[in-house]
Simulated scan of single mutants.
Amino acid sequence: MLVRSRLFALLFAALTTSAWIVLWMWDGGPYARYLRHASWTELPLLGAICREVPGASVTLAALLHSAAWLLMIAAMMLPTAFPLLDTFRRMTSKRENWRTLLAFLIVGYATAWALFGLVVHGFDAALHRVADQLPTLLADGWLIGAAMVALAGVYQFSSLKHRCLDKCGSPLMFITEHWRGRSARRESFLLGMSHGAFCIGCCWALMLLMFAVGTGSVGWMLALGAIMAAEKNFRWGRLIGKPLGVALIAWSVWIVARHAHIA
């Protein structure tokens, strides 16, 4: 059992490390802009496909942004979910299909984050389209960034964040509340989705900072991932929230003051 636990931890670490390496290589390569806000359809081959196939541009962009988003989630959020995955693995280890159940759990978790990613990317795309049509909004885009930073700061003090954090920080209790093992595969998938939903409840405001500072910034992803992992997996992590909230609010005030001074 101990050997299996260590092997699982090593494989999990290898998966997470691989995701970070891919992101780092992508961010340092010639296509780094496609990890952020640039259009995927600017690529030579993809652009040709989009010109020939009606509606391909929107569909292709959505699929590729989703793939990039899931890669970020694998790097940032899977480490925060390790206690849940390891606890579930130990609870189901006597079942012959425990690997399948664990896979359904991970897919459910990823599905919740993928849906959130589609919503956020859709909102981000709509906001950029509006900004392109309104030069004044584009010129004052810093206001949007300041508002997002302030929102993330205020959310650190909300009761909803702390209720979600309590759920994410108690993997054994969470599993016993949401998994009975009767319809094992379906319950495993729904368990993953439920846990993903509570993780989103903890972290959505911090994840929005990715759009304020630049989606795909590996440095910011490392910082935010470390903060979210500490909040969920360590007792002292709960002490991070309020100082972080104060720092984010102060940052938003600094952004406003800086641009007001320039104006």
Rank of each mutant, 00 (worst) to 15 (best):
L7E: 01
F12M: 09
F12D: 06
A14R: 08
M25N: 06
Y31K: 09
Y34L: 15
W40M: 13
L46I: 04
L46Y: 02
G47R: 00
R51G: 13
R51E: 03
V53N: 04
P54S: 13
T59E: 01
T59P: 00
A62C: 12
A62I: 09
L64M: 15
H65N: 13
H65V: 08
A67E: 13
A68R: 05
W69D: 12
M72K: 15
A74L: 05
M76K: 01
D86F: 06
F88T: 07
R95F: 04
E96Y: 10
N97C: 11
R99L: 11
T100R: 12
L101P: 10
V107T: 08
T111D: 00
A114N: 08
L118R: 14
V120S: 12
H121C: 05
A125Y: 14
L127M: 06
L127N: 02
P135M: 05
L138Y: 15
W142T: 13
L143Y: 09
A146T: 05
V154W: 14
V154F: 15
V154Q: 10
Q156M: 05
R163F: 11
R163E: 07
R163P: 04
L165D: 02
C168M: 14
G169F: 04
I175P: 00
T176I: 06
W179R: 02
A184N: 05
G192S: 06
H195C: 03
F198C: 10
G201T: 01
L208A: 11
G216R: 13
G216F: 12
S217E: 08
G219P: 00
W220L: 14
M221V: 07
M221N: 08
A229S: 11
A229V: 08
L248S: 01
I249G: 00
S252R: 12
W254C: 15
A257Q: 00
R258Y: 15
A263T: 15
